[in-house]
């Protein structure tokens, strides 16, 4: 597998999203057209690029590219959107949902760093509960974000598309395997890659992989894949989850979170994990 990102890019030191781009494009291979929308880092790749996109138009841009190729009889190219959580969860959601509903033969890969990092860490609908961002600051009255993270993979599973999966930069083999599998499918494919951001999440840049791994090991960011909106498989199943405090404590964006709040997060995380385990046993997604 060749390296297809052009480095060094403009990402910050220890950027999880830059690693997500590197791993994803390595797996996608050179026969790929990449679409980006404004987000960070705007990783450059050696694959051709569909430029000029607007932030809100990710799903439509991929549709247009794919349909033009199809009209010309070129069907062996991966048409890939590489967006941030802003482009996927928020401003671009409508167009991506429509593309999923039409089952366009495209990839939507999201480097999810849980806030609008390009503009300086403003909250997105992907920002988790209580996280401090520049628009959900820790004030004397309101402390951090008051609502939880939007469950985007499940929303897209409900579109009954061929492939929806989560991945983490802490588990590169899993990430690459999911892309390789997705490449064998025709239709809409989504991969959400949790990509820690040392600047926004406020931890030492050297710990990016550690933080990513602990999200998976605590059950905060479970790794799974859903095919055709039904078949469900956990791709990382520890015998026992680590306590969520292991994930929360090292990140200063959660510094103000109380023990009581952490207990609530632990309860929700465990409940969600048990549901996923049950789905995994059945091989069938339980909602």
């Amino acid at each position: 597998m060749d390296e297809l990102t052009i480095t060094p890019g403009s990402a910050c030191q220890g950027c999880g999203a830059a690693l997500a781009a590197r791993l994803a494009f390595k797996a996608l291979g050179p026969n790929t057209i990449r679409h980006g929308v404004p987000c960070c880092p705007d990783s450059a790749t050696m694959t051709p690029r569909g430029g000029g996109g607007v932030f809100e138009g990710g799903g439509a841009a991929l549709t247009g590219t794919w349909r033009a190729l199809k009209a010309k009889g070129i069907t062996d190219v991966q048409v890939v959107g590489f967006f941030g959580d802003g482009g996927t969860y928020d401003i671009g959601l409508q167009g991506i949902s429509a593309a999923a509903e039409r089952n366009e033969n495209i990839w939507v890969i999201t480097k999810d760093n849980e806030a609008y990092m390009n503009t300086g860490n403003q909250r997105s609908s992907s920002t988790p509960l209580y996280a401090m961002t520049s628009t959900t600051p820790v004030g004397s009255v309101i402390k951090g974000k008051q609502t939880g993270k939007k469950n985007i993979p499940m929303i897209f599973a409900a579109h009954h598309v061929p492939f929806v999966a989560t991945a983490s930069v802490g588990y590169p083999e899993d990430l690459i395997a999911k892309i390789e599998y997705g490449k064998t499918l025709t239709g809409f494919k989504m991969l959400i890659i949790q990509s820690p951001c040392p600047v926004g999440w406020r931890y030492d840049p050297a710990k990016t992989i550690e933080v990513a791994r602990s999200a998976v090991q605590t059950g905060i960011w479970p790794l799974y894949e859903i095919t055709d909106g039904e078949k469900f498989k956990l791709t990382y199943k520890p015998r026992e989850l680590k306590p969520v405090t292991e994930y929360y404590k090292p990140q200063a964006r959660f510094r103000h979170v109380t023990d009581e709040q952490l207990a609530g997060i632990q309860e929700d995380t465990t409940k969600n994990w048990e549901k996923l385990l049950k789905s995994d046993e059945l091989g069938q997604l339980l909602i």
Binding site: H35, G51, G57, A60, G64, A68, L69, G95
Partner: peptide, 24 residues
């Protein structure tokens, strides 16, 4: 040709923009 019944005008414009760039 490919006819895309999109979900709104913003997407229709982006779709033809991307398709035109891809040579259609």
């Amino acid at each position: 040709g490919e006819f895309v019944n999109a979900e709104g005008e913003l997407s229709t414009q982006v779709i033809v923009q991307a398709a035109s760039r891809a040579g259609a």
